[in-house]
């Protein structure tokens, strides 16, 4: 059976194809102007990489903010369930998933079947999401990808408001005026975002077998801070953690959980 999972997020679109229980191809792209276009593009890339055509797909599940009204989708599932199931499918011991995406952040607890037992998701506020990291990185004049590595060089703790991304930005600007070193501000940004995530994730009972997914999982600064604050060590997933939404969707489509 050939099953596809397609995750159309706010910043990136991801797709995964599973054939008879094995991953055959995967792709991550920046989103296009519409959800449909993003879905079509990423799916066409992932199918061609696997040497397949769209017609070869037996079942397709979509997830992410653009999951609705995709003509080739057979079902849609919330990204919360998909992230949970995707991570669980790759490592059956996983019970908690912290997912930090472009516009939301969630903590998901899954049961012994990989399905959602409990979850918490941030409210509209952007503090603690990929979007706020992007804005703050821009404010201090570095690329989003650099935020993690730069912050690791920090030698001095500086304080940053973490209640709201607007307050955070104001404080960052204040630090720039005061000529605080960029590496220290970068560290403070990662700390502030991590603190928000910790606050949120405490609402779900965290278990030891925990992993991190979503775009922000690639920011080593935030990941280190989270491990330090939560006093845990994230389990390493065998696949790119940003792909977990699409992975879970593919598992749903394949009905192999």
């Amino acid at each position: 059976m050939i099953a596809a999972g397609c995750d159309i997020g706010s910043l990136t679109a991801k797709a995964v194809i599973i054939r008879d229980g094995s991953i055959v191809s995967k792709k991550i792209i920046r989103v296009k102007e519409t959800a449909l276009k993003s879905a079509e593009t990423v799916m066409s890339m992932v199918t061609s990489e696997a040497g397949l055509k769209m017609e070869d797909i037996d079942s397709c599940c979509t997830t992410g903010y653009g999951r609705y009204d995709i003509p080739f989708s057979d079902m849609n599932k919330s990204q919360i369930s998909c992230h949970g199931l995707g991570a669980f499918w790759l490592d059956r011991s996983i019970r908690t998933i912290i997912d930090i995406g472009g516009q939301d952040c969630k903590a998901v607890a899954v049961g012994e079947n990989g399905m959602v037992k409990d979850f918490i998701m941030n409210e509209k506020c952007a503090a603690g999401t990929g979007r706020s990291l992007e804005i703050l990185a821009k404010t201090i004049g570095i690329e989003l990808e650099e935020l993690g590595p730069v912050s690791l060089k920090s030698k001095k703790e500086v304080e940053l408001a973490n209640k709201c991304s607007i307050f955070m930005e104001l404080d960052v600007i204040q630090h720039l005026y005061n000529k605080t070193k960029i590496r220290d501000i970068a560290n403070a940004i990662n700390t502030a975002v991590a603190r928000r995530v910790v606050q949120l994730s405490k609402a779900v009972r965290l278990e030891n077998d925990i992993c991190i997914t979503g775009g922000v999982s690639k920011n080593i600064g935030v990941v280190n801070k989270l491990e330090e604050m939560l006093k845990i060590k994230f389990k390493q997933l065998p696949e790119d953690p940003q792909l977990m939404g699409a992975m879970g969707a593919a598992v749903f489509a394949a009905k192999i959980n």
């Binding site: 304080e159 408001a161 973490n162 209640k163 709201c164 307050f167 104001l170 404080d171 204040q174 005061n178």
Partner: peptide, 16 residues
């Protein structure tokens, strides 16, 4: 300001 929550505003911002 948040008069009770130090996470919202720093002393320096208020002084400025």
């Amino acid at each position: 300001l948040d008069l009770f929550d130090p996470r919202a505003n720093s002393e320096d911002t208020i002084k400025k």
